[in-house]
Design a protein around this nucleic acid. Structure first.
Length: 156
DNA sequence: GCCAACGTTGGC
DNA sequence: GCCAACGTTGGC
């Protein structure tokens, strides 16, 4: 089975890659965008590679690698009235919001910053670099995956 | 179904 | 803190 590749964004003040390293794995809760949900629900498979990106960070950067450790399941925060992510319209028998779990794989020796990614050859089409691209979960091509790992010095 | 108003994301 | 680029909402 062919692996697919993804990039997830997180604000480090909210949930950092360092925290994922400590936690080992985490349920990727709180995604409230339909396109991002559809990727998680329909396409993210066990073992898929995940680039972990810090947004709203100084500097914004890809920090390292995670992988999908549990496929699509309902995001419990949508049913929690105390959660910021509560969705009163979502029904338990047909949840609106799905999530995957991801687990820590390895940190880059050196974070790959946004300015470096913009300068890099071969990443011109990367969705992350597209103007106005605000998806918190987005696909990465296998070529881009290889290129990013090579730039980070983390080739297998 | 259109689209203006509003809210959010995220780089800078 | 600013603001461009979205996505969502809701009146009509």
């Amino acid at each position: 089975m062919r692996k697919n590749f993804w990039l997830v964004k997180s604000e480090p003040d909210d949930y950092s890659f360092e925290q994922l390293r400590k936690d080992g794995s985490i349920g990727w809760t709180g995604v409230r965008n339909y396109q991002a949900r559809n990727y998680m629900r329909d396409q993210m498979k066990l073992g898929d590679g995940v680039l972990f990106y810090h947004s709203n960070a100084e500097p914004p950067a890809i920090m390292g690698i995670a992988e999908v450790s549990k496929e699509s399941h309902p995001d419990p925060t949508q049913f929690d009235s105390k959660s910021d992510y509560y969705d009163a319209k979502s029904k338990k028998d047909s949840p609106t919001w799905m999530m995957v779990d991801i687990k820590f794989v390895e940190a880059f020796k050196r974070p790959l910053t946004l300015p470096e990614l913009k300068k890099a050859k071969g990443l011109e089409k990367m969705l992350l670099l597209r103007k106005g691209q605000r998806l918190s979960v987005m696909p990465v091509s296998s070529e881009e995956w290889k290129r990013v790992l090579a730039l980070a010095g983390n080739e297998a």
